[in-house]
Amino acid sequence: MDPRTSVIGKRLEKVKRIIAVSGGKGGVGKSVISSLLALALSESGKKVGLLDLDLSSPSDHIILGVKNLYPEEEYGIIPPEFQGIRFMSITLFAKDEPTPLRGGDVSNAIRELLCITRWEDLDFLIIDMPPGIGDELFEAIELLKRCEFILVTIPSRVAFETVKKLALILREIKSPIIGVIENMKRGENDFIPKECERLNLDYLGSVRFDEKLEDSIGDSEKIKESKVFEDILRISRFLMEGQRDLSRCT
């Protein structure tokens, strides 16, 4: 009998909202959205946690410039704090080593992380989900009962096709979907908002493509000056106040 799952609810009882940032497709910017969303909510005075569940290619620590952070042991693991954000990632233990894990190992690692991590009082726990509609997604749904989803896409039929499938699955298993963020938006194109409307998905807003973002990676202060952060900050208000950002709907 695996004892770990019995205690996960208790580990998260002080967390008000658990939000998984998913999208199915790789390369649409889930990690940037997750990291900057955590940063934006924290900037707005909220207590925030960020859990990078992308076990094979974690990147939130690279985006935010998290360095030399070590988890503290106290009746479990206390996620270390970075810029006001409680942060947990496999990199805190694996450092820069690759983590070649098969499905069963992924599930085991997620259960272990959720079992030993003691999240304190948080308004939001943002979870950066890996690509795919597989083990990590179903572990999150099974173990994090209150998990709500934000789906990330780019203005592309190819990417949205996967978002659509993910939305169908989440609806089928009755997991709440907060809405869709359209990332890397360039020019005027209403394909994603229209598709969201057609599928009865809330369009949370768009995040402009910013070619200078790469220069800000690893420097959270520089990131805060980017167009991308400005847009995510606007979207984060929807999460805090329940007001949808429609300013960039075309």
Partner: peptide, 17 residues
């Protein structure tokens, strides 16, 4: 003291069972 977290999981799990 990560052992405490695992012990807590065992106790919760036994109580559940």
């Amino acid at each position: 003291m990560h052992e405490w977290a695992l012990a807590e999981a065992v106790v919760e799990s036994v109580l559940e069972a």
